[in-house]
Design a binder for these strands. Sequence first.
DNA 1: GTGAAAGCGCTAACAT
DNA 2: ATGTTAGCGCTTTCAC
Lengths: 325, 325
Amino acid sequence: MVVKIDDVARLAGVSKTTVSRVLNNRGYLSDTTIKKVHDAMESLNYQPNAVARQLFKKETKLVGLIFPTVDNPFFGQLVAELEKRLFDSGFKVLIGNSMNDPEKEETYLKELISNQVDGLIVGAQNRDISEYHTSNLPVVSIDRNMNEDIPVISSDNYQGGKLATELLINSGAKHIINTNGPVNLKTPANRRTQAYADVMASHNMVPHTYVIDFNWDINKKERIINEMFKEYPEMDGIFVTNDMDAALVWRTAVKLGYKIPQDLKIVGYDGANSTRVLLPELTTIEQPIDEIAQVAVKTLIDRIQGKEIPAEQILPVKVWKGQSV
Amino acid sequence: MVVKIDDVARLAGVSKTTVSRVLNNRGYLSDTTIKKVHDAMESLNYQPNAVARQLFKKETKLVGLIFPTVDNPFFGQLVAELEKRLFDSGFKVLIGNSMNDPEKEETYLKELISNQVDGLIVGAQNRDISEYHTSNLPVVSIDRNMNEDIPVISSDNYQGGKLATELLINSGAKHIINTNGPVNLKTPANRRTQAYADVMASHNMVPHTYVIDFNWDINKKERIINEMFKEYPEMDGIFVTNDMDAALVWRTAVKLGYKIPQDLKIVGYDGANSTRVLLPELTTIEQPIDEIAQVAVKTLIDRIQGKEIPAEQILPVKVWKGQSV
DNA sequence: GTGAAAGCGCTAACAT
DNA sequence: ATGTTAGCGCTTTCAC
């Protein structure tokens, strides 16, 4: 049998209100009462039932996180950071990996919406899902444009794209390709490609953007990358929109006999911790992951507390100098 | 205002009992009633309050996951896989990254227990925490020996350690070092080191195990690894207990002028997806992460349903042939 | 087939 | 300084 507040009250010889007061440090309590109650809780090994409390308070102290997958250096680090900061603010984290499955995202959303969570931080590859609009759950998005009401946190994607492209041009690359996710996905990350196109144009070079879908499995990605090499044999520089894909491009290039960076210069994007440990040679644009997490959590909590919050917050990127440029 | 079951009942012109029955597909309902109720739910955009349901049912369909951190290729993939399979079985996931902080683990545990999770899957670096014993919550552990009642799932650590060591010996290494986490941590992963010691002994070689704590930050790890190179200048082979550390060893070796694998042969452990993409050159012992997740989830669900479950389940490892041996 | 009523474990008026 | 009581939104006996 599970111990409940009445059991504690009975043992301590008080009413359950009193126990509840001790539990929540509310109202006037005599020291002896407090002690009696604490002793009773101790000896019964009492754990308050959070669900009952949640039902009454209409507040769960739970935040839902919807991201493609935690099996990825960038999202793994991001989720870890979010979790850490949410924990420090008294929230626990319900996680939903939506990858490859818009239905799954919708299911998650539905289940999280009604009273299960106090707020949501999302960065999924979603299509337009109506629940984001119709519920009045506080939502903060990372690197996704959802709708007017949902604030977006992102790295300075335009600046990142600019830095990456300039890095390639300045190191002498003449035929520079860019990869990006599907363009129909509404994300500020598309600004990376915009910046690439702008910089290319200003140097009188022709931009080519190649689509690599985040959700494709590795074999499909490798096949597409091989095709890309065939299609652009003159390619001597490439700005890949994330580090995992950049690593695949690198591997493929080496297999095809390219020397990096002599024959092909590569710049990635993300710069997560574990990427930097496993492949420090990759030159990349580092997102300020920790700061993104920090701002996202602060923004969400402000939203939950009904404060005014900015519609968009853009955080500065840095260049990680590896040896691929 | 949030729509509740009474609102639906009123609009549909039935009692809330009936709405509840429709919701749960229970009892006898006329088709017209079902339709009326569905229409009402639709037009009000009704989402049942999961918390209220949980309070009544004493079942949350929530599973807690306590792991060091999701910002790591191995744990990231493991958690992603666990989440996927739990979702498929109708569970959502509450996540707790305990890293560096036994207190945090204890806090999590308490809060998860009081949050009424239906079960727990743990693989944290924990000390002995009493809550694991005193609560009668179903718990499954991955690669940690907790206590008699808690079943353990792990890769075949002994076989992995044996394969790794033999790989190094067969490729001609004479002075082979091993790294491991703190020995006082009770984990089947210590069998890797045991196997290493056994194989070394059977070849009349002297084993040396170096401690690298998983929780140390990167700078400290690098410092220790540098010391290790000083202490064992004759080292020409090393079996590192996880791939991230193996990558650090590799980097350090290269900085010190070693050629891999000519001067130093390296074998890692884990073989997670993103490691294989970012650093496929690393020869490593691959844990069957997907299978571990699958077995852990099945075992937990069996436990929740009161079935008999094995105390220990060991899953086979494979060698990933890179170029570091 | 459908409804009325009790209760899951907790909190917060409102009393005293 | 402490107790009584009425819910939080749902599910489920037990009636009809």
